[in-house]
Amino acid sequence: MMRPACITTCLAIAAVCALPDTTYAVEAALPSDSVYQLDAMLVDQSARPLRFRDLRGKPRLVTMIYTQCKYVCPMIVDCVKALERELTPAERLRIGFVLISMDPKRDTPAALQEVMTTRHLNPAAWTLLRPDAAGLRGIAGVLGVRYRALADGEFNHTTELVLLDADGRILARSALIGGRADPGLLAAVRAALSP
């Protein structure tokens, strides 16, 4: 016959085990001005599905491109790479570089993976994403990117490099692209990464 104390303890343990996974409840609520408030589904270059808010957890430098773009988009990638080079190796791992495609039809995970390879992008720091068609305009909306799909499948679009903090709030943005990193944006990145 078990002692009452033992029974209570066992019941307590059982009760705790029956509780749902509490890690969710411990996580702080998403701020009202976080872009991750937008519910959207995407897949990455490895065909792994994720929700937009799964990017939460570290500062991110986000931009929108499409792989068939021959004009400005390669320059955008150059620009982000130039910024990456300015950071220390430790800093580079504390930030995530995210390229989101505005061309979900053609930018399959395979196409995204090809960009990773040809541009020598470090998968530990870089994520290439393809949104579901339904969520694309919304993602562009929260990031402030304007784009138009052309009849031939190409796109006209604005250029935005958006720096998000770990919770998805916009810290800085830049429309400057060129061979070198925008010094203002670089300063903002460093500030975001300082402990």
Binding site: R137, A140, G141, R146, Y147, R148, A149, T158
Partner: peptide, 8 residues
């Protein structure tokens, strides 16, 4: 409209 941000 859906593509309000397409009016560049």
């Amino acid at each position: 409209v859906e593509d309000y941000s397409a009016l560049l």
